[in-house]
């Protein structure tokens, strides 16, 4: 049984929601990595993912809206941009992205 199907079984109570949201899960859209990183893990398990900038986010799987999301609790490890597809290509060409926020102070 693959990880996705295991997760579906674990979340059987969400079947009703699934039935009214047939497009929500499998379209392959963005902002998936923090969730994907916890797909096969338990709550409070350590998790990590590497985003399109090659930066590593390490944290813990925590519950948001019935699902597990990897919430970072270690400083971002900045890496080399590893451009392979979709918004990675975009990021390489365009400006205006921030992982850690910018100015603070008065």
């Amino acid at each position: 049984m693959n990880r996705w199907h295991s997760n579906v079984c674990y979340l059987a109570g969400l079947i009703l929601v699934l039935s009214v949201l047939p497009v929500a899960a499998h379209e392959g859209h963005g902002d998936e990595l923090p969730w994907e990183a916890c797909q096969a893990l338990e709550k409070s398990a350590q998790c990590a993912y590497t985003n399109s900038h090659g930066d590593v986010y390490r944290g813990t799987c925590r519950v948001f809206s019935g699902g597990l999301m990897c919430v970072r609790n270690q400083p971002i490890i900045h890496g080399e941009v590893q451009q392979t597809d979709s918004h990675k290509d975009y990021d390489a060409l365009h400006q205006g992205a921030s992982e850690s926020g910018t100015g603070e102070g008065l």
């Binding site: 996705w4 997760n7 979340l11 109570g13 969400l14 929601v17 699934l18 949201l21 929500a24 899960a25 499998h26 379209e27 392959g28 963005g30 902002d31 998936e32 990595l33 923090p34 969730w35 994907e36 990183a37 916890c38 797909q39 096969a40 893990l41 338990e42 709550k43 409070s44 398990a45 350590q46 998790c47 990590a48 993912y49 590497t50 985003n51 399109s52 590593v56 390490r58 813990t60 948001f64 809206s65 019935g66 699902g67 597990l68 999301m69 590893q82 392979t84 597809d85 979709s86 990675k88």
Partner: peptide, 28 residues
Amino acid sequence: LFSGTLALAGCGSSDDSEVVDTTDDSDS
């Protein structure tokens, strides 16, 4: 948000970004 739909959000990625899988539980 209260219905738990976000449990599905990690499915079906077409992104090639590495997902680092670890099974070590932390102390909560």
